[in-house]
Amino acid sequence: MSKAENNVLPSGYHPKSFWERNKRSHGYLLRREIRSKAYKLFRFLLLFAICFLILHPILDKLSVSLMEERDLYDSSIKVIPRHVTVENYEIVAEQIYYWKALINTLWISVLVAVLQVAASTLVGYGFARFDFPLKRFWFACVVLVIIVPPQTISTSLYLRFRYFDIFGIIKALNGGEALNLRSSSIPYYLLSMTCMGLKNGLYIYMLRQFFSGVPVSLEEAAYVDGCNTFHTFWKVILPEAVPIIVSCLLFAFVWQWTDTFYSKLFLGGNTLLSMEISPISDRIANYFSTQKGIGLSLGRRNQFVSTATLMLIAPLLLVYLFAQRSFVESISTSGMKM
């Protein structure tokens, strides 16, 4: 019915009005129109509701964290704070050693992500391109790694690194005492380098899926031109795989950033954001009662927890803002198909 359509139609043809057309179709057109409008409304409501559910906690925390204490108790203030302050941020930053923890977390997350993805890339390529005996068996092991909850083996990993030893060599050198690696981060780096870190099985799976899709002719061409296997991998395959590697890195980074499980087990000696933030409410309450001699109300405690949470996720949101495409497309292109 639009103008553009009219121009295309042959001259002498007069478009009928909606109602006339409706009459000719015995009411079908109207019914169809109503149905499609209703569906659009339903779709809008559903999407809006779910977006609201997802964004609500963040917006809520943002508004609470910016309020002054008196705004908290003012029942006329619901969402938008009347007296805006950044005092909460300052107190939290001081209590959780924010900048130090931020830099530590950044450093460890980047390092761990790079180690994990580098190892997973090698392994993924190995599974995608080479034929070797027991290949199916080893791939079944990868699936096992995905399925085994880390909690199952955490107990014995913990003890293993508490009394770390390689075939009794260290014991002999150290005078009968096994090495205590509990307080250092070395164990976690070892785990990351050997694909046993957080969700590494998943990265292997994703990367393998991607490499399987790269045309073999590319490697054959390189091989004919005199590249050896590793050269081919480095010069031909890796540049192809940059997008998927970037997304794996992002996932590894983000999941490491918020992880507490492995951090608690292996990174106890470091000041990490996720570790500092868990006991935040008690710590702040303690600070207020010892330094200022006042107790904290529930609402105020909640305010501090909200502030701390926002400070934890702010860098992640920033990363997500710039790399959102990478996150989403990795899953669709690598296709988590089985």
Binding site: V123, F130, D131, K135, I153, L191, C195
Partner: peptide, 20 residues
């Protein structure tokens, strides 16, 4: 090729045997 394949997945094998 088989040897190269094993070299590529070596990190996983070590990790799997030792830490899993």
């Amino acid at each position: 090729r088989a040897i190269s394949g094993y070299l590529f997945i070596l990190p996983f094998i070590i990790g799997f045997l030792v830490f899993m």
